[in-house]
Design a protein around this nucleic acid. Structure first.
Lengths: 229, 229
DNA sequence: TAATATAAAATTGTTAACAATCTAAATAAC
DNA sequence: GTTATTTAGATTGTTAACAATTTTATATTA
């Protein structure tokens, strides 16, 4: 467990955040080699902190670590997408079951704020901001049950989930519409609105269904398009 | 993700395994400061690999990492125990639900072998061996569903679960018996035997109940004894 | 004496150089 | 011409020294 407090960032964290955002934002090709000396040169620091960051990214699954051979940007298969969506959804449902579907007033307010962000980003082309709004939204669901380690576990999946966002977006920009005839932005808004309504009404069952629909749809889109390719 | 293959260990892994086992085996006091230079001197290597190991242990929750101030052996509260047991149990049940309660022949054989180990260790005083047998047993349950990342997630909880083993043992060596009048070893055997039988009979429901009983009992014992202390 | 400020020691964070390993190119053997 | 073998280069793994920070001990002041 890492105790924070003062967020005066050390170099490892700077490298970590930089690399994570670069990967999620799609500025690094899946499979691409991540050479420590290149990165440390780019960020004007030594290899040590960069190595730390790469090891952490390997834990998060954004990077594949091959001992003695270096790191590569993770190649994420449709199967990976399925697993991440399934797990993230399962953890959120588990949290809701524990809390009886009840998210407190602060949580609801935060979710509503995140909802507004998601709406306003629907037309834009800002993956990183989308990912952050999405995380803010779903985090409140997980936090509802007050089980710290469940949240930590869910949090560990977030970077991968973020990377999937990019995959989804790229798939969509080719076809622009999915089976339902909705744009990606619209579906994102719809999907989250259904979850929010369920949580606000306090219906555990409907909330779980909404979460399933949300994550399964994501998985389905990735899977379908993998067939076309 | 870390690709292995050749398990010719590097120094980071040596330090990691050493520290993890020391902590789980109770040779380091909870709260104790872990000073990099001391450890590296002890293991005859430099601070670099030791730092790597400590960072990994922080991810696993066995160590608390205080930036600029160093690491301490994690202080695990009854609440932590509850959360770890709850999560580990939840993930195992999730896996079984996915696999419809079906563990393949190889898995069953492995579980039976682990069961024998657990039995033979019942009288001994070998926490590390107990932990490994327990892990071998439960791992097969998680692996049944073939979701790689679910296993990885569960695996990440294993070191903490191992540490809880020690806590449980220490509590028991004071009172030697729990409410049920069973010795710790006997309960361990009983509890796992019920799980194994359920899995072998293919009954998802009974397997989930057995898992719940197993983990909830662990949590209960830790909680109860925290009241006495 | 107790509380605060200062100085010394210990410890972590970072770097740069060295060692070991892997990769790829050039050479040799068939 | 193709396959091995050797060699040179690139990259990771490890170390030891340095810088920054924190902790402990000492001295100062009220």
């Amino acid at each position: 467990m890492i105790s924070e407090g003062d967020s005066k960032k050390n170099y490892s964290d700077i490298a970590l955040q930089y690399l994570r955002e670069q990967i999620i934002d799609g500025n690094m090709q899946p499979g691409e080699k991540l050479i420590e000396s290149n990165i440390s040169e780019k960020l004007n620091l030594s290899r040590g902190p960069v190595r730390d960051a790469l090891k952490q990214l390997a834990v998060e699954g954004l990077v594949d670590y091959h001992p003695n051979k270096g790191c590569t940007v993770a190649l994420l298969s449709p199967r990976d997408a399925y697993e991440v969506f399934f797990l993230r959804g399962s953890l959120e449902k588990l949290a809701l079951e524990k809390s009886g579907g009840h998210v407190d007033a602060y949580g609801i307010l935060t979710m509503e704020a995140a909802m507004e962000e998601i709406k306003s980003l629907a037309g834009e082309d800002n993956i990183l901001a989308e990912v952050k709004a999405d995380e803010k939204f779903h985090a409140q669901i997980v936090l509802s049950c007050q089980i710290t380690r469940l949240y930590k576990m869910w949090e560990l999946l977030s970077p991968l989930n973020g990377a999937m966002f990019l995959t989804l977006k790229n798939l969509r920009s080719r076809s622009d519409l999915d089976g339902s005839g909705m744009s990606r932005g619209d579906r994102l808004v719809n999907s989250h609105e259904r979850i929010l309504n369920a949580v606000k009404s306090g219906s555990l069952e409907e909330a779980c269904k909404a979460l399933d629909a949300h994550y399964l749809k994501n998985g389905e889109i990735i899977y379908r398009s993998s067939l076309k390719a």
